[in-house]
Design a protein around this nucleic acid. Structure first.
Lengths: 226, 226
DNA sequence: ACCCTAACCAATTCTTGATTGGTTGCGCAA
DNA sequence: TTGCGCAACCAATCAAGAATTGGTTAGGGT
């Protein structure tokens, strides 16, 4: 009667005896067969049971490991940038940044709001498109800081890094400066005002409108100057 | 007089002739010497000029490449986890994941929905809390995959990695299994149904409700069984 | 002084063979 | 027939050494 579950029992006994910590690798199947005195087929059945239980995980060429399978963690900006495109990045911004703005409206301090206004002034005074983009970036990051959530800020930074990596080739060659009636100025103003007034929905919508216009310019760069 | 700038001129001519796209690698210095008929020292001077101009970048062992040097930023999950706390992580989930669910409702394929249902079944059949949590994680990630946006998926993975790192010590020791009337089951069902019916608002709200309950359990783990 | 050449250094990539989980086919026994 | 053991093979992975490549230095010549 023990024959059917023998392999699993022996395997469990072996694991209990050695008390292996999580993420540690156990001997290859062929060795384990000799150690436990079981055929490979039986051993693999036992391993399959434990794997389906989440007690261990296996991978070809690597081996068999104790614990839960590690999830493939993308934090590498370059890796993400290589797999995506400007449309996906813009879409992610449209979904994430309004939520961050909403949170900023709730948590911004007086100091944060002062910083936001500073960024707004700087973007208005920009002499070149490059300077304007720097100010715009600073403002968006100031909003993320105003949310006062370390995780959200880190996610924003990641998204921002991906954006810069993806849109890298799209540097503006224009030598002229942003026009005084550039749409971003009023949008920035509405955004900062909403945050200052603790208007969460307003901040979210203002950010959404602003990014929608940016998206429009991205897809039709010729129409940027209007 | 041409002698001083000869190498740079020839190099520029070579680049213009071949019209290499950005991020493409050009021949190793030793070959380029023969091609252009210039000594390595002169060639390296020319390359140094162009590199300082940001027209190309070099790296030992890799080669010389056209365009700007790729940014090497990565958000270190461990670093974020060290600076944050479970409350911030939960808050970030409440803001981000509903948006991902909304996008999933729009973009999910039939295959994605089948996978979601598979995850739902697995979570219902879980024999232990550990198995349940594995299934729950799989379902949340399946939703992120169904959004079909590489950037959103990467952000979700980052957030998820931070979450696991932060609540690492909080593993359930309970030996009993999740009750059949666990709140998550009906919430999962509502979420998947909304995605299947392309109900973006519904999917977003279902995810929000689900996470709110999870948050409740996190803050008051004793009341989890109700 | 300046430059060319050659050699060397360290970081990276390429190549090759071994390892490992996953699979298939054959033979044997109940 | 069904199931098990055995062996071989497959593809993914790893590991170690050779080859490549940008960066540097020393010697010789003009």
């Amino acid at each position: 009667m023990d024959q059917g579950q023998g392999a699993l029992t022996q395997l469990r006994a072996y694991l209990a005896q050695h008390d292996l910590p999580s993420n540690s690798r156990l001997p290859p199947e062929r060795e384990l067969c000799d150690i436990l005195g079981v055929s490979r087929g039986e051993l693999r059945k036992a391993l399959a049971v434990m794997e389906s239980n989440g007690e261990l995980w296996r991978h070809v060429g690597k081996g068999t490991f104790i614990g839960a399978r590690p999830t493939k963690e993308y934090s590498d900006v370059a890796a993400i940038a290589a797999l995506t495109n400007p449309r996906e990045v813009m879409q992610a911004r449209l979904l994430i940044e309004p939520q961050i703005a909403r949170e900023a409206a709730l948590n911004a301090t007086a100091g944060d709001i002062a910083e936001l206004k500073q960024c707004m002034i700087a973007s208005r005074q920009a002499q070149t498109w490059r300077q304007y983009e720097n100010s715009d970036n600073r403002l968006h990051r100031a909003v993320a800081e105003a949310a006062h959530n370390t995780v959200l800020l880190a996610l924003f930074d990641t998204l921002n890094a991906v954006r810069r990596a993806v849109v890298w080739g799209r540097l503006r060659d224009k030598v002229d400066r942003p026009p005084a009636d550039h749409h971003s100025f009023v949008e920035h103003e509405a955004l900062v005002r909403a945050i200052e007034e603790r208007d969460m929905d307003g901040a979210s919508q203002a950010m959404l409108r602003h990014l929608s216009h940016v998206e429009g310019n991205l897809l039709a760069p010729r129409a940027a100057a209007e």
